[in-house]
Amino acid sequence: MSIDIKTATIEAKRTTFDHIVEKLGEGKTPTRYQEAVFGHQAEEVFHYRPTWDSERELFDARRTAIVMNDFEDLLDPRQYYYGTYVIQRSKQRESQEKNFSVVEKRGLLEDLDAVMKEKISKVVVPFRHAEWGANNNNYYIAGYGFQTPITAAATFQGMDRLANAQYLTSIGLILSSNDPAILDQAKDEWLNTPMWQGLRKLVEDSFVTKDWFELHVLQNYLLDGVFQPLLFKHFENEVVKNGGAAFAMLTEFFVDWFVESQRWADSTIKVAVKESDANKALVESWINKWQPTVIAAADQLAEFVFAERSKDIIQQIETELDARSKKIGIQVQEK
């Protein structure tokens, strides 16, 4: 049966689902983002306690010490739902892919001097393991976090980090003309070279951090807030200045991605901090606990890359991070 009538005579009974009306108020038309993230995590009538966490319910707000009246307030300013996320990333992928093939085909990195090449393979390629760590941490947040806005965005962030790890692998392979030994060397550096151990220990400590919001602060705010600018701003500048303009083509994705992922981290932390003094105190305590260690780990790496300029650069990075902290309502400790 196909009813053929003028669609003008078809009147809608309602604009959206009840739980969205409750949230946005009567008469509002929700966006697809709002329909995708509001009201989907089960809230009550849990049948069984998890065998892996019998003290709590399957979805339980108490897996973080942060207390929110409504965890759905931790919105993603980019308003990504699955469709918009993959479409946006596939556009970026296209230009990243072009960059890779231009650099590869024309051998644009080949003329780079040996010192710079060595630095890239010692600094950038081993960082794929840190990105893998970030991938794991974001899936932790996605799995054990509370409500959909933060867990969906953490899933995208997790995917992004696996992509980052794979892009870094590609950079290594371009440098080595597809000789995988460069990856094995980089892993060896990651596991054994002193300058990486500060970061590796931090990443391993993050793996056993149980509070998912603390992990969000540690990974997506502090570790990223220090290491992304260190590698993809300061180190990249260094390479570019030394005749490696092509290197910037290979890391374009990182730069764009960091700008947007920072927006997400800042805005979610800001909302939590604004909610209550207790949340604010908690986030401050986490930042005070972790930031010095993150900075110390970055110091170790910076010294190898920037030698005598390293103190300056690290200070610059920390000043920027502190400025971000102030903006999102966090009291910054005197250094």
Binding site: I10, A12, K13, R14, T15, T16, F17, D18, H19, R32, E35, A36, G39, H40, Y81, Y82, G83
Partner: peptide, 22 residues
């Protein structure tokens, strides 16, 4: 999400979908 978005249109006309989350 694609299911929510697909059913969102039907929900405007038919009963039994609007109170899903409850």
């Amino acid at each position: 999400q694609t299911q929510i978005h697909a059913f969102s249109h039907y929900n405007k006309f038919f009963n039994g979908m609007n109170q899903q989350s409850r």
